[in-house]
């Protein structure tokens, strides 16, 4: 795993640099002249997240979120709402806590021994961290797609059918068949795999695997889908397909996506949240964040002065 992630990191790096230089060329030249270069010492954190972190009638609402890994605090006092059927992008430099925040939304951080999560998390009024709330039920409602495509080493059919079987969503064979087909259709994979449903899912290409993972996630009909850099291991064509898919899925699901690619955030999301060193700096409509951000840290990031 160590090596795999480091490979990902290196393969990501060039594309990011490209992003940065593109932005610099287009927008920043005016700003860059005369402005003080950003570094750790002269960053001013806002007391309160700028923009509009809260919405009316949210799907999920998080208040005063603090996350610790042992003694180290990873998230500081984050307040954020996720609206119904909206796609919210979480962006920010590496290590800013956006993945940690995302993983605390379906309690995936519970699996890390040293991780401690404080704060109020609500999913449609239900407290996510209520000891009485079953984490199994929560994860059926809040699905997750991971950075690296991780299909089970089983057949394509069994991959998609795993969740429904787990939760007993289908009693009959044909019901399960229906769920598998509709999930694969929604994930835009049906036409490519309908003739080989019983071949191993690991035999698909990277992009197909990731769409299979999305199909697997939506097979349990979650209310919210969390995506942790779903395209970082994929080539541009596969990425485009996934982005299109996210757009289609947003009519039925609420989606929170962590991404390193600012173009991706700009393309797929309705709102964008910018994290910096564990603090939520700014939340605004995506268009506003990428054209006229309210905070200079956000501006610095999207113009590529750090990342």
């Amino acid at each position: 795993m160590e090596t795999a992630s480091s490979i990902n990191d290196t393969s990501e790096a060039p594309s990011q640099k490209k992003t940065a230089s593109d932005n610099t060329n287009s927008t920043v030249k005016v700003n860059a002249t005369g402005s003080v270069p950003m570094n750790e010492t002269n960053i001013e954190y806002p007391d309160k997240t700028v923009g509009f972190p809260l919405v009316d009638d949210p799907k999920m609402s998080m208040r005063d979120v603090n996350v610790f890994y042992g003694d180290k605090q990873a998230i500081f006092d984050v307040n954020l709402d996720v609206g119904k059927n909206e796609v919210i992008a979480l962006i920010g430099p590496s290590g800013c806590g956006k993945s940690t925040f995302l993983r605390s939304l379906n309690r995936m951080n519970d699996t890390i021994d040293t991780c401690r999560v404080n704060g109020e998390f609500h999913l449609e009024g239900d407290n996510i961290y209520d000891p009485r709330l079953d984490v199994v039920e929560l994860r059926a409602r809040v699905g997750m797609v991971f950075q690296k495509p991780n299909p089970f080493p089983k057949s394509i059919y069994d991959n998609v059918a795993y969740g429904p079987r787990l939760h007993g969503l289908a009693n009959k064979r044909y019901e399960l068949d229906q769920i598998v087909e509709s999930s694969l259709r929604k994930a835009g994979l049906w036409d490519e795999v309908k003739d080989r449903l019983h071949q191993p899912g690991t035999g698909l290409s990277g992009g197909q695997q990731q769409r299979l993972c999305i199909a697997r996630t939506i097979a349990v009909s979650p209310e919210v889908v969390l995506m942790d850099e779903p395209c970082s291991a994929l080539d541009p064509i596969a990425t485009a397909k996934i982005e299109q898919l996210i757009d289609e899925l947003s009519s039925q699901y609420t989606i929170a996506i962590v991404t390193h690619s600012m173009q991706q955030a700009a393309r797929v999301s309705h709102r964008t949240a910018y994290f910096h060193l564990g603090r939520l700096i700014e939340v605004n409509d995506t268009r506003k964040v990428f054209t006229a951000p309210d905070h200079r840290l956000t501006e610095a990031y999207i113009t590529g002065r750090f990342g």
């Binding site: 795993m1 994860r139 991971f146 991780n150 787990l166």
Partner: peptide, 14 residues
């Protein structure tokens, strides 16, 4: 691979 565990946990497996 831990990714397999995460995938199953993420789907709500105990």
């Amino acid at each position: 691979p831990p990714s397999i565990r995460e995938a199953a946990l993420g789907l709500g497996a105990s």
